[in-house]
Amino acid sequence: MRKLLHDMELTEQWLSGELSEEARQQFSFRMLTEPAFYEKVTLQQCSYRVIRFMARQKLKAALENMHAQLMQEPAFSKQIQQIFS
């Protein structure tokens, strides 16, 4: 487990450009020579995308609620209706 967590931390540092030149070269070498390591790095990149996607979905739901709330305000609702009339 310790090695697994270490590799994940290392991958995070590599993705955010925080590794030294030497560490970056070692990382790149492992990516080229260890298919399992390459796969884990790619999956970690995908994970960040899923986290971002889900956070955006939550935000979109909140914005939908906000829109519905504002459309209950007569002045705001009238203004928007006039724009599209």
Partner: peptide, 11 residues
């Protein structure tokens, strides 16, 4: 990191 590993495994 454990949570990230769970997500990674699911993906």
């Amino acid at each position: 990191f454990k949570c990230l590993e769970k997500l990674r495994a699911q993906l």
